[in-house]
């Protein structure tokens, strides 16, 4: 009596191995889909836009005439936005993270705050725009100025900063603070002198990533009412402003009217991507250079 048909077993096994290899290929192809689209997107944007980048474009004022349009105002607006978002999110984010990680008692209140932060991170950006429009622009009467835009963006990215700061603080090994307590330091002294310096690289990395989210966001600013064509450069917190994504938006919308607007939008995208690239490189450098291993 034969218990095994060796032919059949072999056939079955070969089929199973074939399937395995086949699907490995399929999974690999699926992984490359996103990357291929990314490559097409970048090639498309660069071929359309790179020819339009020159000194006049980078330093000039906005104009309806594509030959004379410049994006200096939008670049300055983006920088002003960053100048508001960085201090606010750092201050609020780090304080909240310190409280949540080191001071809050584990309990109901603590879990309410944590759940709330998780929920805030999932609120669509446009809802923040409505909040900013209602509170900062209309109720406080600021108008669509740098400060209103900066505060709105700060609220939007605050959950990111809080969560990454909390992770950075949690990653500081326990024995460091125990040694500090052992030397007679108080809790705040330990936080200030030991935990924060050790967590700083992580906090900075998180803040920079949040910042790159903030300068790429468009929807909240559309709701705030950033104008399409603004000639004067912003010079302070209470000046009206525009940013690079808004400029891309308006030029894309009008691309069907003037063909060259699509090229200008591409050129602006290149500038925006370059700024994002700089920010992210900084984050990586900070992470690699200052991250201590304990």
């Amino acid at each position: 009596m034969k218990y095994m048909e060796s032919d059949q077993v072999l056939k079955k096994m070969n089929r199973r191995i074939l399937y395995n290899n086949l699907f490995k290929g399929v999974f690999f192809l699926a992984t490359t889909v996103g990357i291929i689209v990314l490559a097409i997107l970048l090639i498309q944007v660069f071929t359309e836009g790179i020819g339009y980048i020159n000194v006049n474009f980078l330093s000039g004022r906005l104009s309806t005439d594509p030959d004379h349009a410049g994006i200096m105002g939008a670049i300055l607006g983006t920088l002003w936005l960053m100048a508001v978002v960085i201090p606010i999110t750092m201050l609020l984010g780090v304080c909240t993270a310190i409280y949540n990680e080191l001071y809050a008692k584990q309990g109901k209140a603590q879990s309410v705050i944590q759940t709330n932060i998780a929920n805030l991170a999932g609120v669509p950006s446009i809802v923040y725009g409505i909040l900013g429009m209602t509170i900062f622009v209309r109720t406080l009467g600021l108008g669509s100025v740098v400060l209103a835009g900066g505060l709105t963006m700060s609220l939007l990215v605050l959950p990111i900063v809080i969560v990454s700061s909390q992770e950075a603080i949690r990653a500081v090994p326990q024995h460091l603070s125990e040694a500090s307590f052992g030397l007679g330091a108080t809790k705040w002294q330990t936080v200030k002198n030991i935990i924060l310096p050790a967590a700083l690289p992580g906090i900075l990395t998180g803040t920079i990533l949040a910042l790159s989210r903030a300068i790429g966001e468009t929807a909240p600013l559309v709701v705030l009412g950033i104008p399409a064509l603004l000639i004067p450069f912003p010079g302070g917190l209470f000046d009206r402003f525009t940013v690079l994504p808004m400029q891309i938006y308006y030029w894309t919308l009008d691309a069907s009217l003037v063909d060259e607007y699509a090229n200008l939008a591409s050129a602006t995208i290149i500038v925006l991507l370059f700024m994002l690239f700089l920010l992210n490189s900084t984050a990586i450098i900070i992470r690699n250079k200052f991250q201590k291993r304990y």
Binding site: T31, V45, S212, E217, N280
Partner: peptide, 24 residues
């Protein structure tokens, strides 16, 4: 090699995707 590329994809601002959808 692959993971940073995917992270790059996640870091592209949505307005850029909008432009890509509309013009390409």
């Amino acid at each position: 090699v692959l993971k940073p590329m995917l992270e790059l994809l996640a870091g592209i601002p949505t307005i850029v995707y909008g432009f890509f959808a509309f013009t390409f």
